[in-house]
Design a protein around this nucleic acid. Sequence first.
DNA 1: ACCTGAACACCGTTCAAGT
DNA 2: ACCTGAACACCGTTCAAGT
Lengths: 185, 185
Amino acid sequence: MTTTATQPERARIVAVARRLVERDGPDALSMRKLAADLGVAHTAIYWHVGGRDELVGAIVDSFIADLGEVRPRGRSPRTRMESIALDVHRQAVEHRALVSLAFEQGRATALWQPAHVALAREVEAAGLRGAAAARAVQTILYLAGAFVTLEAALEEHAETRAAVALSRRVFSDALEAVLDQLEGK
Amino acid sequence: MTTTATQPERARIVAVARRLVERDGPDALSMRKLAADLGVAHTAIYWHVGGRDELVGAIVDSFIADLGEVRPRGRSPRTRMESIALDVHRQAVEHRALVSLAFEQGRATALWQPAHVALAREVEAAGLRGAAAARAVQTILYLAGAFVTLEAALEEHAETRAAVALSRRVFSDALEAVLDQLEGK
DNA sequence: ACCTGAACACCGTTCAAGT
DNA sequence: ACCTGAACACCGTTCAAGT
């Protein structure tokens, strides 16, 4: 009799939970709905992954692990910095439900660690050093983060499509302005 | 026997609810906790103001009504635009719990209507007209809105104080960059 | 007209009991 | 070791019943 190499139950639970969140949004994640999806009593989840906080933590972990390497595009440092900012924004908006969970965990910064590293490289290539370089990286990252949260808030709460489109355009306008100023120095 | 001119019960309920939200945050607002504060059965609230959505709507109404006139400061249009943006940001951060409720209602734009009007005046004084003027107003307002939601998300979810301080600095940096670009045209 | 209490359908968490 | 079911303390909403 061969023992089937089953996927650990914990990993399966987290995977199903993540799918649930990506499909129906962060508010749809409840221990009881998840248990129904899994076909177990909802109290079984506590044995494998712990309470809601630990479950959300595990989902965020799996999201961070999947977050692809950041690939800057373009020739000049300027266009490469811009591409990173746009990538960060796009990735976050595509997975806004998971980003929302990351914020719930107070782990927003961990999300943008890869982008942070990539940006630091480009900012240096643009000729900035030390405090000015660090400041430039933070400005670009937080700008992207700000508009991610704005768009998430607008979309989650049924604001008009027009508002979301406006927000996106303002983001790229502000990004241009910030990059212009960076080059001017 | 004189009939005491009692404050309408509906207004009293909304006022107590608003205080509750401002003191303990938006998540602390529940029909049952509010009823306990009021000293009535929680089902009585339904008679006077309706369900949770209507209650939140009424709180947001009272917030918007209290939102003071926007008073631009400074001599040049540039500094006046800046003061408006900073005021919007400051007001929203001071009342982030109420702003959060306004977003929940999909009424974020209504919140910034007075600032919108004041900004339009200053943008025109700065020499912009038509589509360019409208675009400038939107850029400044959405920039402020983006950093309000970012800060709210950071603070609500126990992110470090350092992250909030950084966010605030990036906001003023980005605002400078945007205003610089506006003047350059 | 105004308010209550019971009821219903949710939610997260704990824990004794089973296998 | 793993899972269940009952129990507890929450939540919003409806509604018949009282005054």
